[in-house]
Design a protein around this nucleic acid. Structure first.
Lengths: 340, 340
DNA sequence: GACTGGCACTCGCCGATCAGGAGTGCCAAC
DNA sequence: GTTGGCACTCCTGATCGGCGAGTGCCAGTC
């Protein structure tokens, strides 16, 4: 059974009204608010079909209809009209992201901007180390047996780790190590570094071998294994809009999920090029987020992708608006990073 | 009118029961659960006095009594017995904080530990820059006109900023600048640096003057003005315990406050030596937190204070337990930092 | 065959009503 | 100063009925 155009119109109208009012929408209200050109009775027939197909449901007999996850999905895939950002929103983005002072600042501003524009919870992943290259490695002597390793990536990210050396180490040695390490690794993509690091150890003069090995261990941890992605969150308070009606009455599971970086990275970090991904309710693998929706996309300078960002909110959200905003912010952020 | 010992006992019993059960406590239940040695009628008389004095109140006529903010205050100041941590808790702290990998890791673990032990929202401030000394300043050339300034503080904190130079700058110049800057600033407390930075510019050879001035500007921003404190949060989901009964029904204002770093710093960061500060309900200057309580203290290696940490929860919280935990965690954290 | 108006029916919501019970305040007695 | 008794308050939860929104179905129309 295929749905004709009018039934789709009805579904669209239901989604739009429900998102706007937060109340189940009935046939009469529908024809009043939208120019459907048919009577409530006809709309009721259409609704019955839509319900049979699983796109809408009634909370109770004789209440209005509410979209199901499948209904939202159909809406997002086929029915929603792309919303252009208002000039005011564009200006807000530009103003908000102007003249950042460093990467932290950029991410911070972006995530707050996103939260503010969408009125949802916003998440921004820091530029992924896995997709970055090494710009420079710095070794700073801290004590006779300790050196701080500072890695600066081309994306502006800076990671540091303390290295405990096996024995005392002279200033000259540090200089030499720094030279060697940079010579070999600078400009390389982080993902490609492990064999190079190994080569560094192998090529090393025997008397420096143990020191270098020690450094190599930490290097690998910093560059690859613990290339633990970071992210930033904002707008948690937006979860309380809609007065406990969203999220089936309890924020608990959602707040819990938001505390797990691993979970958020799964949501935001897995991005394919130039796609905006929308996960609706049950489509989320995370149980705690079965009553939430996530809109995410990748960002990066000039078409590349070096990280993800997105928003999370109730399934009852303004998908077209949020998709548009997420995309726009990602593009602006990419442009900003391209300038650096 | 002074309160005799039994009235204080009654208040203590009310607070303890109310915190435990979340329900207004009546005179009969009180004498049943506590060995007060008097009849309910006597307790009622005492309660009437306590209410007159503003330490407890009735939500409605003929419901039990509930402590007021003033009641909690009296309880905290004079009535609560110090709770010792259980061996299990001590072990948990030690296990949790063992073998951290860097400062981020330390703070991260601490805040989660605190949230877990107290089952409240936990906040940990990063070691304050204002109370740190410069260990090392590093200048890393990024392009011909850009240098990345990396400051490593003795607390392990690392801050970085990009410096846009007025003109191209040679590698030798960078080396020279680095030497000079470190010579002058390394080991200095950040708070003392502004005049030294100025001196650096003044002492500079004229041909390098403009470069140094530019660097100095960013240095000052990084070291002092923007010595913006950082902090980390955990356990937000704990706010939902007590099913929306706490926080007069709406998490909204609390979540909003938690998003404002400035607010949190006010709560956590203003610490006097070796004091545990308890702010109860209305004692908070922040309007959004009028229905919350905050227990905070300072931490640092060997008696010094380099940052604050604490927990935030409903006024109806286990003050003795939370105070004990906050103190213990702060002490362990201080010890940990002392080892570095 | 699709659409429409009419109509009976369902059922959640809201307010009123009511009994039960917990808890109080007061008072007289010890 | 303490206690038992007692009347009173008033919240809680359950019950009930009317209202109304909204539906499903059916017969009639184009």
């Amino acid at each position: 059974m295929s749905l004709d155009d009018r039934k789709l119109d009805v579904l669209r109208a239901i989604v739009e009204d429900y998102v706007a009012t937060q109340e189940p929408v009935g046939s009469k209200a529908l024809v009043e608010r939208h120019q459907l050109g048919v009577s409530p009775a006809t709309v009721r027939n259409d609704m019955a079909v839509l319900e049979e197909e699983g796109y809408i449901r009634q909370p109770h007999t004789s209440a209005g209809r509410v979209p199901t996850d499948a209904g939202y999905r159909l809406f997002v895939d086929r029915l929603s009209r792309i919303k252009a950002l208002s000039p005011a929103e564009r200006r807000a983005i530009e103003r908000f992201l102007a003249n950042p002072v460093d990467l932290d600042d950029v991410v911070h501003r972006t995530v707050r901007l996103l939260a503010q524009l969408t009125r949802q919870v916003a998440v921004v992943q820091y530029p992924s180390l896995a997709r970055s290259s090494v710009r420079h490695l710095e070794l700073v002597p801290i004590s006779t047996t300790r050196v701080m390793l500072v890695m600066i990536a081309d994306t502006g990210r800076v990671e540091q780790r303390l290295v405990e050396m096996p024995g005392p180490i002279a200033a000259d040695d540090v200089t030499e190590l720094r030279r060697k390490v940079n010579e070999k690794l600078a400009g390389q993509r982080l993902a490609d570094t492990p064999p190079l690091v190994q080569a560094l150890v192998d090529d090393c003069a025997p008397e420096r071998r143990s020191t270098m090995a020690c450094l190599a261990t930490v290097l690998l941890e910093t560059l690859v294994e613990r290339s633990e992605e970071r992210l930033m969150l904002a707008g948690t308070a937006n979860l309380t809009r809609g007065g406990m009606l969203d999220f089936q009455g309890s924020l608990r599971p959602v707040l819990e999920a938001l505390e797990e970086e691993v979970i958020l990275l799964k949501l935001i970090g897995e991005v394919e090029p130039s796609t905006t991904r929308v996960r609706i309710g049950d489509e989320n693998e995370i149980d705690n987020l079965r009553s939430a929706s996530v809109v995410s996309t990748g960002y990066g300078p000039g078409g590349t992708i070096i990280g993800g960002l997105g928003v999370l909110g109730p399934t009852r959200m303004d998908y077209p608006g949020n998709i548009a905003t997420v995309r726009a912010v990602a593009r602006y952020l990419g442009d900003l990073l391209a300038q650096n």
